[in-house]
Design a protein around this nucleic acid. Structure first.
Lengths: 324, 324
DNA sequence: TTGTAGGCGTTATCAT
DNA sequence: ATGATAACGCCTACAA
């Protein structure tokens, strides 16, 4: 591999000092325009690029953010992380940030990874996904004064850690409210909700959106319509069976995820409207409506929060109902 | 964020010179055991970790590999990249390698990214996915003497670039051969192949596996059984319609992808055996068989090839038929 | 076996 | 506005 030109090379060609070259790069304003131009020509002619590691060593910042690639995620919605990552990498690049991946089997392992990554100065900020109730990573990061942003709210925490925990999330409640309302407007009355057992922040939030919309429509008797199944990638029949077992049959079903929606769709056929969540390729392919998270906005907000030193510490974005 | 301890700090605590500390880290063999131990204690007590950027600057290697997160991929099989990445990151970590992500809209943009990444010494090797016929990235990388491995064969190239292009791939032909054979053993005779139009290396390779198995079974009349559809995430009815239109109906269908298989499955119902490709969560969920790529092995092979200086320059792995 | 000296490429500080 | 000097943390000679 060819030897790379350095600031000194550029300086020599341009007939200035290394420092001036550095200034042109980092503080162009303080360099006389005519000098600046000469330096820039030299840079172009040599094909010079700053050496990332040298700069990082000097500035003591890696300009790199770490993101975990979780193993879990049923894979169907796994494409969600995929799409989020893509948006994140793209936007990060525009701000001169790199994205480094890591994995960890569980929380303790992940904290050990944090130590390695941070002590080695490999990353100077972290983006966490799939936060959950009682997440031990958060207090660890706060305590160690690490810069981080989570994609996901700190479910159940409203205490002092609040200001030190920056997060971005999507308002699932609003999403399900919109979906349910849209079905109501189309004349459906008996609308079932197919979700996970009570206890997950995300799931409960989405359920509440459905409840609220139903209540607003004057439908207070939700008996039997609140379906809760444990998701099982091996057997999406569960959700389907729960839905098919409803007596009388529902007019429509709103779901906490696209994979649940797939089950419902297969059990009920294409004539009963079904709304999923996440707008995965699956929803597109099968032609059912779904609630799409604005991942590009999420990525932008995450980077914004990572970069800003003060001001707003969290952001709740609104998803969009994709009709089909 | 706390100030990190350096070699000097460790040296001071251990009562030796910086150099000895460095030796303990990099060439433990030449340090007297008793000194070594003292140094290691100091390292542990201070929680010292080498500063990644400083080391990179000095050694001129980043110990980081770049991987592109492509935008394309229909998302269904997108989870394939996900799973591959996961395996790669996990194994890379064991070898002390980091994985950096990048994106690019097209080949030219990607080559521009290469320049940035390499000149900035951000990465010292690249892993490319979704190679295709006439891939311009390959000659560029070879010419610039960049270390890289592709997950995917150089379709159509058997010339001099051969030795300089290291690749790992999965034998789709063998996969479809196995799948088709298994159906034949179950008594099916009229087995259709649902794939993409001729012209993609991957697709043609898979088709050939089916052809070969059929020929070996003495079935030479494949008229009408070789179905070719352009995949369209909006409308997986295409594949389904092609399959449903067969007259007489097929005994079974083997497909070039799980999303094609999904279409076939929905069109034919659960009684006609369908085999997909990639063993995505979709196949698991719907309960159709699929051909699984050994992604963990692929990741291992990729890292192996990246690391080795001589020896084998490519590896063709065999996929596994997952019956359901 | 251990220590000394120098430099990787960059930028911050302080002169000029 | 520009330049000289030093230092970021590490490693590779080479010397002791």
């Amino acid at each position: 591999m060819r030897r790379l030109p350095t600031v000194s090379d550029v300086a020599e060609v341009a007939g200035v000092s290394r420092q001036t070259v550095s200034n042109v790069l980092n503080t162009p304003a303080i360099v006389r325009p005519e000098t600046r131009e000469r330096v820039q020509e030299a840079i172009a002619s040599l094909g010079y690029r700053p050496h990332a590691s040298a700069r990082r060593l000097r500035t003591r910042r890696s300009s790199t953010i770490g993101v975990r690639l979780d193993p879990g995620t049923d894979g169907m919605s796994g494409s969600l992380l995929d799409r989020f990552l893509h948006a994140l990498v793209e936007r990060a690049d525009r701000s001169g940030l790199r994205v480094l991946l890591y994995t960890a089997a569980d929380e303790d392992a992940e904290i050990a990874v944090f130590e390695r990554l941070l002590d080695g100065a490999d990353v100077d900020a972290l983006v966490l996904t799939s936060t959950h109730y009682g997440d031990r990573r958060i207090p660890w990061l706060v305590e160690h004064d690490v810069r981080f942003v989570t994609f996901g709210r700190p479910w159940g925490e409203h205490d002092t850690t609040d200001r030190s925990h920056r997060w971005v999330d999507v308002d699932g409640r609003a999403g399900l409210h919109a979906g349910t309302t849209s079905l109501l407007e189309q004349g459906a009355r008996r609308i079932a909700f197919l979700g996970w057992p009570v206890g997950s922040g995300t799931g409960d939030d989405r359920r509440n959106g459905w409840r609220q919309a139903m209540r607003e429509a004057g439908i207070t008797d939700l008996a039997g319509l609140d379906l809760q199944v444990e998701e099982d990638p091996q057997d999406l029949g569960r959700g389907g069976r729960a839905v098919a077992g409803l007596e009388p049959a529902p007019d429509a079903v709103v779901c906490a995820s696209d994979s649940l929606a797939l089950g419902a769709r297969l059990a009920l056929g294409p004539d009963v409207p079904v709304i999923g969540y996440d707008d995965t390729p699956l929803a597109r392919a099968l032609g059912f409506a779904s609630i799409a998270q604005p991942l590009d906005e999420v990525a932008a907000a995450v980077l914004d929060l990572i970069g800003s030193d003060e001001g707003v510490h969290h952001r709740l974005l609104t998803p969009r109902l994709v009709q089909r």
